[in-house]
Design a protein around this nucleic acid. Sequence first.
DNA 1: ATGGTAGACCTTCTA
Length: 259
Amino acid sequence: MRIATWNVNSINARLDGVLAWFEEAAPDVACLQEIKCLDEKFPAEAFARLGYNVVVHGQKSYNGVALLSKTPLEDVRRGLPGEASDDHSRYLEAMVSGPSPVRVASIYLPNGNPPGGEKFAYKLRWMARLNAHARSLIALEEIVVLAGDYNVIAEPRDADNPSSWLGDALFQPESREAFRALKWLGLTDAFLAADGAPGAYTFWDYQAGAWQRDHGIRIDHLLLSPQAADRLAAVTIHRDVRGRDRPSDHVPVVAELAL
DNA sequence: ATGGTAGACCTTCTA
């Protein structure tokens, strides 16, 4: 089973390119982030024509996540527990049905810039809530894949030029510590477990020729429960997608599980 | 030198 994660930076602005990629890569499951639309504006019919079941957790203009699956999606959860006043649409979870059911979440973790501000505090609270929820999921001993834009540069090797990120929320010690805490729960970074080499990035800024200079960072991750990690076969970053017409600033990452 | 671009959408916010 191939499971993809992709921050598309507006599903409607990107629809032709996203559909073309789905036709060629044909993932069984996909987690999308930053769809930037309300549920009713998501182009669900276009994906249904490609054979996907669709679940959306959107909002106007910002954020928004979606799950697509060739088999039905069940037991849907919209939003992370733990902060009733949080009105950002950043978390969507469902059970992918089949002979070996897989629980999948599409995650758009807060950016948090600038460090020290309210947005950074929100990022850290959100990561603590994700940690608590992930702990409860791991206890179920299911095949679980938590995939998305984590907005964290976990290690210096995950940036082309780490020093340029020292003042950024994505590379703050607190952000990196909270990301490590997720791994200490028993979650596995699929890319690293599949022997991913340094220099592989998933995001290049639109500004300052970042793509042309390969000033990238690896911030889109698939974190696996032990039961999922046992079945990991391969991870592929679809880097070439960044060089296409009107691209997202992120590219798809695909993990293959032997199910 | 604190730049640069992209999307949503209405004037500025987010990234």
